[in-house]
Design a protein around this nucleic acid. Sequence first.
DNA 1: TCCATCTACTTTGCAATGGAAAGTCTCTAG
DNA 2: CTAGAGACTTTCCATTGCAAAGTAGATGGA
Lengths: 135, 135
Amino acid sequence: MPGTKRGPQSGPQQDKTAPFAYDGLDRVIHEKARLGLLTSLMVNPEGLAFAELKRLCDLTDGNLSRHLQVLQEAGLVEITKGYDGNRPHTTCRLTAAGRRRFVDYLGVLEGVVRDAAEAAGDKYAPGARRGVLPA
Amino acid sequence: MPGTKRGPQSGPQQDKTAPFAYDGLDRVIHEKARLGLLTSLMVNPEGLAFAELKRLCDLTDGNLSRHLQVLQEAGLVEITKGYDGNRPHTTCRLTAAGRRRFVDYLGVLEGVVRDAAEAAGDKYAPGARRGVLPA
DNA sequence: TCCATCTACTTTGCAATGGAAAGTCTCTAG
DNA sequence: CTAGAGACTTTCCATTGCAAAGTAGATGGA
């Protein structure tokens, strides 16, 4: 073993002055597909069917199945498997906790957008219209 | 082989009416760590040193190294390796393309926030303050 | 009646990837 | 002259996203 064992390299310092660490970006939520799913469910709080989600988010069956599983295990959504006549019919809705966590996540996301957009405005187009995204 | 081979399951339809597919969420950018890095670089267009980025984003050396490599390969950042005396000194800055792509990404992100926030406002707190984004 | 197909999902397999730990080099203290 | 810090890079591994294949019941001919 070359070199006596040293402590872990610099090691993450606890967020002391790490303004761009974005700790709040929950892995479970921060994912293209899941982000779409959660947004869909946010817009449709009464719940959505498997097929509907699939269409709205343009996912394959397999993907959707897996992501829903992840979301369920994380307690963000509630899945109800039932029958429509005798075809299986799965519906999905946000749990209260899911909604809370998603809203928190959105807050962080908003911060990201604001940070960057401000920079874009300040440094590259001084004096230009303040509002974040281009007109 | 049970069941004659069928076409790939329902297969992703081309974004026809898939309002929550969020295609624009570029994998390379849409990643906790990299998002922080890019934002840092957006705020500091003159470039940042390795150590500085590490601190700002609270990353370990290894992680930072890797993510920078990814960003560089994607052409989003430009990395300059030089020497400060004879210690290595790496600096990093956004490329023009990087800035463009990041701004595009931010546009999509803002859409996500808006979609969801609207839903939150409309369905859960009717009449409440409209803008999620600050006044 | 048989079988091909559709809807509705679940399971499996694999290649990519984030992250921790370890490695390399050089410089600076003691 | 050895211990340790700074600045990175490389290795290794468990996780994971995604696609393809699989399961199962319903439906529609021929």
